[in-house]
Computed example of a mutant assay.
Amino acid sequence: MTTLTKDEWIQRAQARFVVRAGLTQAQALDYALALYGDGDVLDDEPEDVVDEDVSHWGD
């Protein structure tokens, strides 16, 4: 895996939230920033992290 910059990670996570959860760009950005802020996700692909997060919605 190539190390992503903060901006790259957030941009990819934001895009995944739009596709996977149907969020608006603004909502997706908020969620992506929150995931990035957790800090323990930085070694993982953003798409994988978003998929895991969204899979728990509605639990």
Rank of each mutant, 00 (worst) to 15 (best):
M1R: 08
M1G: 15
M1V: 07
T2C: 00
T2Q: 11
L4P: 01
L4F: 14
T5C: 14
T5E: 13
K6H: 15
K6V: 05
K6S: 15
D7K: 14
D7A: 14
E8S: 04
E8A: 10
E8H: 01
W9I: 11
I10Q: 08
I10L: 07
Q11S: 13
Q11K: 11
Q11C: 06
R12K: 12
R12W: 10
A13L: 07
Q14C: 06
Q14H: 02
A15C: 00
R16L: 03
F17Q: 09
F17W: 09
F17G: 07
V18Y: 04
V18I: 15
V18G: 01
V18A: 00
V18R: 09
V18W: 07
V19E: 12
V19I: 07
R20I: 10
R20W: 01
A21I: 03
A21V: 05
A21S: 09
L23H: 14
Q25T: 12
A26D: 15
A26C: 03
A26W: 03
L29Y: 14
D30Q: 09
D30K: 08
D30A: 09
Y31L: 12
Y31K: 15
A32I: 05
A32R: 03
A32C: 10
A32G: 05
A34D: 12
L35Y: 15
L35N: 14
Y36N: 12
G37H: 04
D38H: 04
D38G: 08
G39P: 04
D40H: 13
D40V: 12
V41Y: 13
V41D: 02
V41P: 02
L42P: 08
L42M: 08
D43G: 11
D44Y: 12
D44S: 04
D44L: 02
E45K: 04
P46S: 05
E47P: 00
E47N: 01
D48H: 05
D48Y: 03
D48L: 06
D48I: 00
D48W: 06
V49R: 02
V49Q: 07
V49F: 01
V50G: 09
V50L: 07
V50F: 11
V50I: 07
D51W: 02
D51F: 05
D53C: 07
D53H: 06
D53P: 00
D53M: 01
D53Q: 04
V54G: 08
V54Y: 08
S55I: 00
H56S: 11
H56W: 15
H56T: 14
H56K: 08
G58L: 08
G58I: 04
G58N: 11
D59G: 09
D59C: 06
D59A: 09
